[in-house]
Design a protein around this nucleic acid. Structure first.
Lengths: 99, 99
DNA sequence: TTGGTATATCGGGAAAATCCGATATACCTT
DNA sequence: AAGGTATATCGGATTTTCCCGATATACCAA
């Protein structure tokens, strides 16, 4: 786990919002209901909620994924993103011990 | 507490090192012994240990202070910096609840 | 007051981040 | 195969970060 990479990924208001929204997909992405929440939330839902362009949101999700904070699954033409709770636990542990 | 400002402050290898060194001044800044550790560690000690220039380290400490992660005391011609443990507790709390 | 030491601030060149529009890729449907 | 939809990648203008040298400020000692 690259601490600096994780903190850089967290150094952006929109990316923090996305992570927070992904805590409760059913609450924050009701449109997603038709596809179910098993895999996470697809890029388009997140993009519409941020108000930013598709390319920007796709890149932001890639940043979060490179930092390990989310994982993704491709299902058909959709990519579903979800939080990686292990990474948050590891982050807190590293703040307590390494920083 | 501005989450983004805190994460930006933590998004730099040298600043993370400084915070870690300040966990144990006696161990990491033995030269400081003559002045005592009551107030923290002065800028020059930290600067020498990083190997960066004085102006850079002074600015880095200011960044950490604006984020609330350290506090400083001026004593004579020295400014002593120390960790603000409350800020780390608040950070962990905010990761657990807001992010 | 003068000279020395410690720290902060200023100005800037180089590198990285931000966010966009355009385009490429992948997959699905007919 | 052809057209449509979802996502990723590319190229770039703008802003921010990184780290420096030079200079300003604050304090101390003779």
């Amino acid at each position: 786990m690259d601490q600096v990479e994780v903190f850089k990924a967290l150094s952006n208001r929109t990316r923090l919002q996305i992570l927070n929204w992904l805590r409760d997909p059913q609450q924050n992405f009701p449109e997603q209901a038709e596809n179910g929440f098993d895999h996470g939330v697809c890029v388009g839902q997140i993009q519409r909620k941020t108000g930013l362009t598709q390319s920007t949101v796709s890149e932001y999700l890639a940043v979060l994924q490179r930092a390990g904070l989310v994982s993704s699954v491709r299902v058909g033409q959709w990519t579903y993103y979800r939080r990686n709770e292990d990474a948050f636990a590891a982050l807190i542990n590293s703040i307590n011990t390494d920083i």
